[in-house]
Design a protein around this nucleic acid. Structure first.
Length: 226
DNA sequence: GCATTAACCACAG
DNA sequence: CTGTGGTTAATGC
């Protein structure tokens, strides 16, 4: 096992900044760091869950295998925790996490994690805040998916990629058209067509996976009205 | 009815 | 893996 120094990593985690020295060393001794390539599975639906994962760098998709097709629940980027609901909520994972870019993650034993939750109120509080924010995000995502037509859903996801995930008007989509379809609940063909149409309208510029947002005001309008 | 939306299928780079 | 065309079912006006 690679020797870790959690204090370095913790600079990034609001929650873990609350640790005392002894808690920190306990983390150091019960934490494993792993690198994942694109498309490698970090944890799998239906497998026993015994770890909380802290994403140091990279980006993942959380997916549930439905009967017809795969459903992407959401895309998360580092730094963040993964697997809190699925590890605390049940013995097995209810969804999978898959790296969509090269990703580095820390695996924290669930029992150690629980101990820290009990012993450190500040830490617990921050974790709770993160969980609540996630729940709110999911509620909004749910309404967005159910109440909007495809252009609205697509515009919304483009804006999220741009503003929340890449923080840039220009970015490389970390997923293919099929995955994009699973993200916005449509078919792969429709994603192709709609993106092409947005490109014709000069709202975005596309070069394969490369996307540049040209007209953000228009994209916002489409998101609101779509 | 007729138009629109979007899914599914097939096929070609 | 993607883009496109044809076809079709559902829904709206």
């Amino acid at each position: 096992m690679r020797q870790l120094n959690c204090s370095m990593c913790i600079l990034k985690s609001e929650a873990a900044r609350k640790f005392s020295d002894s808690e920190l060393s306990r983390m150091n001794q019960n934490c494993v760091e792993v690198d994942f390539k694109k498309n490698e599975i970090i944890f799998k639906q239906n497998a026993l869950s015994s770890n909380i994962i802290y994403l140091q760098s990279g980006m993942v998709k959380l997916v549930i295998e439905g009967k017809q097709r795969e459903q992407i629940l959401r895309i998360k980027k580092a730094p963040c925790y993964l697997g809190l609901p699925t590890t605390m909520g049940d013995k097995i994972n209810h969804y999978s996490a898959v790296a969509i870019v090269p990703t580095r993650a820390c695996f924290i034993d669930i029992n150690i994690f629980k101990e820290l939750l009990k012993s450190n109120f500040e830490f617990s509080y921050e974790i709770m805040v993160e969980l609540c924010k996630n729940e709110l995000d999911q509620f909004h995502r749910c309404v967005n998916l159910v109440q909007k037509h495809i252009f609205g859903r697509l515009a919304n996801s483009l804006i999220q990629f741009s503003e929340e995930l890449f923080e840039d008007d220009e970015f490389d989509l970390p997923i293919n058209r099929n995955e994009y379809a699973d993200l916005v609940c449509t078919s792969r063909e429709t994603v192709s067509r709609m993106l092409a149409e947005l490109s014709e309208e000069k709202v975005i510029e596309i070069n394969g996976k490369r996307i540049k947002i040209l007209n953000k005001e228009m994209l916002n309008k489409i998101r609101e009205n779509g």
